[in-house]
Design a protein around this nucleic acid. Structure first.
Length: 511
RNA sequence: CGGAGUGUAGCGCAGUCUGGUAGCGCACCUGGUUUGGGACCAGGGGGUCGAAGGUUCGAGUCCUUUCACUCCGACCA
């Protein structure tokens, strides 16, 4: 396509509130446009092209893996959320509204309820199982504090898949199959990622794994083993238990645990000195939705003791009604791996995928049953699988950029090659540029032709900012029959003879 | 929700203390000179100064109220 006709509003200046490389470059490169600084974004032609590329890879691999694409209604009746018991738990992140008849609806932040509702109406027999349906659709979460551009917008594009099985074993087979499929997808997209064990959060369920794009700016801390494949989100990471003897000093942290319907309890968490309370683990240990610091002076009626303290503390020291022993402390750098004894380290990651072994959490709540071989009604066993498609766009740039701008991976680039005519008033440069442009188009190579009358400098800046993998410059050496071939990564420049240009470009671009 | 701050042209900001013609840079339009690293000259368009009320001869500026957003902490693909 011709640059002069496309809406690509590049900008020299960095937008005020953008601090993350991906946010800055996507805005400056004219990929996205923010809507009123409130976590909402428009995708402009370049951004939409990248989004479609990612979507295509995701769809192709999922279809190959036997999943079926559907599109569920974005607006979902609140009653389904009430039925599943998630209305309260999801809370303020749900955007709720009424229609003209005063019926209550929510904008879907994830679609377990909708999907289960669909399946319970249409699937009745074990003969129809297993089934794996997915969609690539908008989601809305009314985030408390949207930031970092596409990384944490309120409206975002997500691929969400749901599988239904006759038993746990079959669900676990699909879970493993999806782990492999996701690895294929992220590898194809060209990102450096790591699969880690995770907490299941508000979705619920047991086994869960996250796919993390490794980047220093990531919001998640992940723990990885130096010696083996073990990796886990800090929220779920476990280490080889330490052994404490009786003389150990310990600290007690008093927290207020919040439950459904506004109920709360004060709980004391007891940790060895120097250890840190891991709130997600602590929530899980007491079945709470949330924890906050408690300033109550009274003795807490419930005490949870870090399990590794075991016999080292005397439970009679606490005047408590209930005492539990749980793993509630954060893994620290230098701790030992439970699998191989290797040293554990921290690193930062961006969560771009999450797969869950859901079990019967939703099928039971929503009455999604099937008849088995014996004619018995049984709840389906489910798995659920997500990929943050719009977030991936940001994650790819977070991992692939330099001080000049974006460096797109081949599968995601909006175009594969850009032709830059240094001076449009130079008839020879213009003619050779056009010739190559039409040849590339003829061969089905996605090409962006910078035919603007701007000066060379600003065209190069725009090229570097947008980050298309390759460029050809029709410039000052044209009279000697030479043009320049540029590889964006590293800005490597090569001189190429004009006679072999078309073949040369085709070979490099398609290799 | 707790703490800090900001609202003035499409974007980034000055002007507010000390009331008196609405400013600057970038972007945009016209003409000309330029054309290998964000050119230059000349001319031009664009604003209910976040909103409402008040004080005053006169309010972007002072007073009151209100709304919005940003930044730092607890949630998530």
């Amino acid at each position: 396509m011709k640059f002069s006709t496309l809406l690509i509003p590049t900008s020299k200046e960095t937008p005020g509130d953008a601090s993350l490389a991906s946010h800055i470059y996507l805005l400056r490169g004219g990929f996205i446009d923010s809507v009123g600084d409130s976590g909402l974004y428009n995708f402009l032609p370049l951004g939409k092209k990248v989004l479609d590329k990612i979507r295509f890879v995701v769809k192709e691999e999922l279809d190959r893996a036997g999943c079926q694409e559907v599109a569920l209604s974005f607006v979902t009746p609140e009653s389904l959320w009430r039925e599943s018991g998630r209305l309260e738990k999801y809370g303020r992140e749900l955007l709720r509204f009424k229609d003209r008849k005063e019926n209550n609806f929510v904008l879907g932040p994830t679609h377990e309820e909708m999907m289960v509702n669909l399946i319970r109406r249409t699937v009745k027999s074990y003969k129809q199982l297993p089934l794996h349906l997915y969609q690539i659709n908008l989601k809305f979460r009314d985030e408390i504090r949207p930031r970092f551009g596409l990384m944490r917008g309120r409206e975002f594009l997500m691929k969400d898949g749901y599988s239904f099985h006759v038993n746990r074993e079959d669900m676990q087979r699909e879970f493993a199959h999806m782990e492999e499929t996701y690895k294929t997808i992220f590898t194809r997209l060209g990102v450096d990622f790591r699969v880690v064990e995770a907490d299941s959060g508000a979705i619920g369920g047991t086994g869960s794994k996250e796919f993390m794009v490794l980047a220093d700016s990531g919001e998640d801390t992940i723990v990885i083993c130096e010696s083996c494949e073990y990796g886990a989100n800090i929220e779920a990471a476990v280490a080889e238990p330490k052994v404490y003897d009786e003389g150990v000093t310990y600290i007690s942290v008093k927290m207020k645990a919040h439950y459904d319907e506004g109920k709360s309890k004060v709980i004391a968490f007891v940790l060895p000195e120097g250890a840190e309370l891991q709130e997600v683990k602590a929530c899980k240990a007491v079945g709470a939705n949330d924890l906050s610091v408690s300033d109550e002076s009274a003795q807490a009626p419930i005490v949870v003791i870090e399990q590794s303290l075991g016999a080292a503390v005397d439970p009679h020291d606490f005047d408590a009604k209930e005492i539990f022993y749980e793993d509630i402390s954060s893994v620290k750098e230098g701790d030992r791996c439970v699998h191989c004894g290797g040293v554990l380290r921290y690193t930062k990651g961006i969560e771009v995928g999450h797969i869950f072994q859901l079990g019967t959490r939703y099928s039971e709540a929503l009455g999604c049953h099937f008849l088995d071989e014996n004619g018995k009604s049984v709840p389906m066993v489910m798995g659920t699988y997500g990929i943050g498609v719009s977030r991936l766009l940001a994650a790819i740039i977070e991992q692939n950029h330099d001080e000049r701008g974006c460096i797109w991976t081949r599968e995601c680039a909006p175009f594969i090659v850009q032709i830059i005519v240094a001076n449009m008033k130079d008839e020879a440069q213009k003619a050779w540029g056009e010739k190559l442009y039409y040849e590339m188009r003829e061969k089905g190579i996605e090409v962006l032709f910078d035919d603007r009358t701007k000066r060379f400098g600003s065209k190069m800046r725009d090229y570097e900012l947008i980050g298309i993998p390759y460029a050809v410059v029709m410039g000052k050496n044209l009279p000697e029959g030479k043009v320049e071939f540029i590889t964006r990564e590293g800005m490597v420049k090569e001189e190429v003879g004009i006679e072999d240009l078309s073949l040369f470009v085709e070979k490099r671009v398609l290799s």
